[in-house]
């Protein structure tokens, strides 16, 4: 059996794939959030940034898109396979089972992951392809599109809920992916996770603030 097959077949190999793809996505999220926050500066700033990405940086954008696409698929496929393996590992459930250590983050990884996958599809259809238009939207006017969409309560609600799922996903995922890649933090409590908490809060806040600010007319 060759090395790659051996690697992929094992639960640890799949976990490593999840961790690496997860970290790629975290990197993207940081950039994405930073881009979004330009909305607070001015409409021109945001739209210029968008034009830059679709103009001079277009090739780079496509590289990023391909990398992300591969990462998302790898993340989902390994998550799915691991979930199936994990379910098979306990065919008879306990009559009583108490969890002692699992956090809300770790417990919601699967359901939250599915929600996030759904969110990603809708989000792309919404802002990238403009296929879904809850309000009239125009190509190139990212700022205007955001204002128009997030003034609608259910659009904002959906984004806010999805970002809660993202925060929880990161609260566990950012911490566990480092451990999956073998990093020990040298802290006496292995559940200690300052970096993951910081990342989760910043990314969650960075994304949530935009729709909320638009909805409450903090931006106009």
């Amino acid at each position: 059996m060759n090395r790659a097959t051996r690697f992929w077949r094992s639960t640890v190999g799949k976990k490593i794939v999840m961790a690496v793809s997860g970290i790629i996505m975290i990197g993207f999220l940081i950039l994405h959030a930073a881009g979004n926050l330009q909305i607070f500066e001015s409409s021109a700033k945001l739209n210029t940034y968008s034009a830059f990405l679709h103009g001079p940086a277009n090739e780079l954008l496509w590289v990023v898109r391909i990398v992300l696409f591969v990462a998302v698929i790898a993340h989902i496929v390994s998550a799915y396979q691991l979930t199936m393996l994990d379910r098979a590992a306990r065919p008879v459930p306990y009559a009583q089972k108490k969890l002692q250590a699992a956090t809300i983050g770790s417990r919601t990884m699967r359901v939250g992951g599915v929600l996030l996958a759904l969110f990603i599809v809708l989000h792309i259809l919404h802002f990238t392809t403009l296929t879904l238009q809850p309000a009239p939207m125009a190509a190139g006017d990212v700022y205007g599109n955001a204002i128009a969409s997030f003034r609608i309560w259910w659009v904002t609600a959906f984004y806010v809920i999805a970002m809660i799922a993202l925060g929880l996903h990161l609260y566990h995922g950012a911490w566990s992916s480092a451990r999956t890649l073998g990093f020990e933090q040298g802290h006496s409590d292995p559940f200690h996770r300052p970096v993951a908490v910081t990342l989760a809060v910043l990314i969650w806040a960075g994304f949530t603030i935009v729709p909320v600010a638009v909805f409450f007319h903090w931006i106009s």
């Binding site: 976990k15 691991l82 393996l85 994990d86 306990r90 002692q100």
Partner: peptide
């Protein structure tokens, strides 16, 4: 099954072995 680092094992372990050992296993495997 595979490890998703819930950490339940560490609290169940009668010898309180740390899940740090799992990180080390991952590293050596990698």
């Amino acid at each position: 099954g595979g490890c998703t680092l819930h950490g339940e094992c560490q609290l169940a372990c009668p010898k309180e072995i740390s899940i740090d050992t799992i990180a080390r296993m991952h590293r050596d495997f990698l």
